[in-house]
């Protein structure tokens, strides 16, 4: 009795030739798709392995605390320069971006909102070299290369990131909360600060971290504004070193020792960038922004 129904169902649901063909095609195509995904993921491993293999060797405490003119060579000034310029850029971008996002989301009419959204979209797509060129043309011929210009160039790139992420989290705050606050007799501006923004706070902070991770990895804008320097002293009014510039300059040099140091600096920079990025991923901010 156990076999009869089975034979019956095999008969009833037997596969035709065309069924079999379709299933073959299906298997083949799925394998192709899997292969493509593998290709997409492959570079990560290759790059990671190279960075570790080539960079780990020269990495030691001295590398992180010495300066380019010391013996042995270090990138302390570059680390400080990167942090200084990105930090100042964040101090500029954060208030402007958050304020702008609040205005567009809470006060602006629909048509103004649409214009604002378009502008932010365009600014997000501006190539980093153009931002650098802009600040370069404005300041460098007169003031020379300096760290402030570098920070400005970074903030041109970071502000739209802050603005877009803040807008998106503000949009997620349910209208009912604003209404509840208004119904209590709280004016709109206080509602916006103490209810809407307070609810969206973690999202806003994540946006700042996202902007930071963008700023710290940029080379092109700094190339045209802050250049680089070997000075141990951090002077924002003069050419300023940064990790990205160190990697860039060392990479194009023909000195193999410098080239090796480029890998080590790359390792340090990548570690920082990865940490920031992981912090953001755990909050799942829309990757379209980057």
């Amino acid at each position: 009795m156990a076999t009869a129904p089975r034979a019956q169902s095999e008969l009833r649901f037997a596969l035709s030739e065309s069924d079999r063909r379709r299933m073959r095609v299906n298997r083949r195509m799925l394998r192709v798709i899997q292969l493509a995904t593998f290709v997409a993921v492959l570079p990560v491993f290759l790059i990671l392995i190279s960075i570790l293999a080539k960079g780990l060797g020269t990495l030691d405490f001295a590398f992180l605390t010495n300066n380019p003119l010391d013996e042995p060579v270090g990138i302390a000034n570059a680390i400080k320069g990167s942090l200084a310029m990105t930090g100042i850029a964040l101090l500029i971008s954060a208030p402007i971006g958050i304020a702008g996002a609040i205005y567009l989301n809470e006060y602006a009419s629909t048509s103004v909102q649409r214009i604002g959204d378009t502008v932010v979209d365009i600014l997000l797509g501006v190539p980093s070299i153009v931002a650098g060129l802009f600040i370069y043309l404005l300041f460098v011929p007169i003031l020379g290369f300096n760290g402030y210009a570098g920070a400005l160039a970074l903030s041109v790139l970071m502000t739209p990131v802050v603005m877009r992420t803040t807008q998106e989290v503000l949009r997620l705050v349910p209208a009912g909360l604003r209404e509840a606050s208004l119904a209590l007799g709280v004016p709109l501006w206080r509602t916006t600060i103490f209810v809407t923004c307070r609810t969206a706070l973690s999202g806003i902070l994540t946006g700042l971290v996202l902007a930071l991770s963008r700023g710290i990895g940029e080379t092109a804008p700094l190339l045209l504004t802050a250049q680089g320097s070997n000075d141990a002293v951090i002077d924002l009014g003069a050419p300023l070193s940064s990790m990205t510039m160190v990697i860039y300059n060392n990479t194009i040099s023909s000195d193999p020792v410098k080239f090796a140091q480029a890998w080590t600096c790359a390792l340090v920079l990548f570690a920082i960038a990865l940490t920031l990025n992981v912090l953001v991923r755990f909050r799942t901010i829309n990757s379209r922004v980057l």
Binding site: S213, I216, E218, A266
Partner: peptide, 10 residues
Amino acid sequence: AIPSVVVGLW
């Protein structure tokens, strides 16, 4: 997330 200069180096 990899800075473009690092990709360039590699």
